[in-house]
Design a protein around this nucleic acid. Structure first.
Lengths: 217, 217
DNA sequence: TACGGAAAGGGGATTTTCCCTGTTTATTCG
DNA sequence: CGAATAAACAGGGAAAATCCCCTTTCCGTA
């Protein structure tokens, strides 16, 4: 990172007062410079599509009218994946964080953090490509090991095997052959599981297995 | 964290020379003390099940005969989820890391790291509950936003809606009603998608959608 | 011996899957 | 402009798979 080079930053936030002060703050950091604002996702698209300048980093508010942070993040990673997006939000619930991370966001900050943290985040973002606050790290970890609220169900070996095989394009008949059992026995497993798990069909079983981490893609 | 309290550590590694030196190293850190070794997962189970002492932290090697790190991690999170497991390994490929993290491991270190990093990791582990090296953070982030190698497929609005609805327990007839289309049209979508995506049945479609992040659970 | 479970079968309704045809609506091109 | 072409939408018909309920057999064990 050459010290004389400034990293360019774009801000997307409908709250112009906040955006202005954010710009001042960022310009006061060494090596970072705000090059534009946008009021929302649509506005951002226009800005990007006629002026050909792309910022390296975009600070993206989530709550916006017209085209919110989720849609905007999706569009950005689809059309300009090289831009590092840092989400800014008031909410810090895991679900929102994950939703943004899944859309390719490289970091997630609460709006009321200390300026110094924003500086750190920007620096890490341009050096390492991402910034993970403690909350984000925990959320990420958590997303892999869901709470398994219902460890109520414990499956027997055969049931587990069946479930795993059912989460594929195999036919029940084929599964029966693989498990060396009669198709009727397999049908028995199926029926029993459907009842216990209160599901209606095989797709329901797949969804269940995925939610409980019984299988992984 | 009371300074007079030592954090207890267990080591699971079949390589006794390495385990010994690791123990010495850890005992030299302030506030950490190794209370036992195990040669592999089975050995660990025995140790835990008759002696009633549980360590706060377990350093777990992955490559072991008899019962390897994966199985052991699975067993530990299932039976003693309060123990913080730190995986130790020679490999640093994303797949292995994810496999361990999915099994509830709280950190992942390469065996050839600097002792000071191990100290940091242990401290973070007992304070925050996890330790994420840069590699682990990147892997976690990566796991949410897969490469989408096949952005080849671009789906029309209706197809996408159909896919999403097909990843549920709805029947095609019900989906038709919801999309305000004839069941036959829905069947057309289905058939077309099966051909394009080279899948055999609805489960295949669900798997596809999940792999490409078209839906989220 | 009685009981409970796991495995297996019979039979039938529903859904899924597949192939072909036709109709309407845009879109492109001569 | 008008004809050709592509596409989205819709239907018929049939085989295969899924889903559901009920019964039987076998085996281990309380």
């Amino acid at each position: 990172m050459r010290p004389e080079t400034n990293h360019t930053v774009g801000i997307v936030d409908d709250h112009s007062l906040f955006a202005r002060s954010l710009e001042k703050l960022i310009n006061s950091f060494p090596h970072f410079q705000v090059i534009f604002h946008a009021k929302n996702g649509l506005h951002l698209q226009e800005k990007i599509e006629d002026s050909n300048v792309l910022p390296e980093i975009i600070l993206l508010d989530i709550n916006m009218p017209v085209m919110d942070g989720f849609e905007t993040a999706e569009w950005l990673t689809r059309h300009h994946p090289e831009i590092k997006v840092l989400a800014l939000s008031m909410q810090d619930d895991e679900h929102t964080i994950l939703k943004m991370l899944r859309r390719g966001v490289k970091g997630y900050l609460l709006k009321d953090i200390h300026p110094e943290i924003l500086n750190t985040a920007l620096k890490e973002l341009s050096e390492k490509g991402y910034y993970h606050s403690q909350k984000v790290s925990e959320t990420l970890l958590h997303s892999l090991t869901p709470d398994e609220e219902g460890r109520i169900f414990d499956f027997k070996e055969n049931e587990l095997t069946f479930i795993k095989l059912a989460c594929s394009e195999l036919t029940y008949k084929e599964i029966a052959v693989m498990m060396d059992l009669s198709p009727k026995t397999i049908d028995g497993y199926r029926q029993d599981l459907f009842k216990r798990l209160k599901i209606k069909n095989r797709v329901g079983l797949v969804i269940f297995a995925l939610k409980r981490n019984l299988i992984q893609l």
